[in-house]
Computed example of a mutant assay.
Amino acid sequence: MNARVIVVTGAGSGLGRAMATALLEAGHHVVLTGRSRAPLRDTASGHEQAVVIPSDVSSAPSVRALFEQIGEVFGRIDVLVNNAGTFGPSGSVDEIEPEDWERTVAANLTGTFLCAREAVRMMKAQSPRGGRIVNNGSLSAHTPRPASVAYTATKHGVTGLTKSISLDGRDHDICCTQIDIGNAATAMTAGVGTSARQADGTHRAEPTFDARYVADAVVHLVGLPLDVTVPSLTIMANRMPFVGRG
């Protein structure tokens, strides 16, 4: 196995921590980034190949500084895992405030764009060239939950961004995958296992699954050669109401 240089955003908790930990255990060099240093250090947990660099993915100067440091430390980047994001406000389009909309777009869509922008620039210039980008989408990139207009819109935007990166990156040996995750058990989804609002207005508990299976999928993607791409991957709790949602 060739150790790769991998950046995981939102690595301080939840899916980001699960993915980063699995990648470290697989022997890769992993840059852990997020807004707060303390949870990133907890994720690093003494791993020799973990590098903690706090950053704000919604800020272009912060993201630029992050990738400049990566270049100084490693001289290249092989994989970017765009995981950072937020659920944002709950409500229909007439019920949410513009400021809450903007914060959600900044975290979920602009942050993914800014990190991909810097990663692609490095991947094109480095030798050997190329790399892989994994964008954390959502089942809401396909079908929304009730009262999730901001989150749903940003995740649909991530789909367009993923497809464009994949297409434009072909000639530069850059692959891009969107992984759409449904009900992985993390702190962010804790309430789903107790009560989740359904499209018909009822509330019911939904099944969840261990986040390590998402991490395993990312480890597998990272191990693929660059002449193989996986445009999209959906992983979800088997009995959750998604295929028949509505």
Rank of each mutant, 00 (worst) to 15 (best):
N83I: 04
G75C: 05
A65F: 00
G91N: 01
L24N: 08
T177E: 10
T112K: 01
H156W: 14
P128S: 12
G12I: 12
T86M: 11
A106H: 07
I77C: 07
S36R: 14
M123F: 04
F113M: 13
L139H: 01
A84C: 06
S13W: 09
N83E: 02
I179F: 03
R204G: 10
A84P: 00
G182D: 10
R64N: 07
M236T: 08
S127Y: 11
G46I: 12
S90L: 11
V79L: 04
Q178P: 00
T208A: 05
G201H: 07
A60I: 11
S166G: 15
E95H: 00
G246V: 13
F74C: 02
H203N: 10
R212M: 06
A107Y: 02
P61T: 08
V57N: 05
G71A: 07
G12L: 06
S36N: 14
T154S: 09
A199Y: 05
V7L: 14
E48Q: 13
P89H: 02
R245K: 08
M122G: 03
I181F: 05
L32A: 04
H220Y: 13
T9Q: 02
G193A: 13
T86H: 02
R17W: 03
A215V: 14
A65Q: 05
S195N: 11
R41L: 15
A22I: 10
I181D: 03
Q69H: 06
W101I: 10
G12Y: 06
H29A: 06
P225R: 10
T208F: 00
Q126D: 08
P54L: 03
L32V: 13
A119H: 03
G12C: 08
S90A: 12
G223R: 06
R197N: 05
W101E: 11
G111M: 02
G182T: 13
T229C: 09
G191V: 12
P241T: 03
T154D: 06
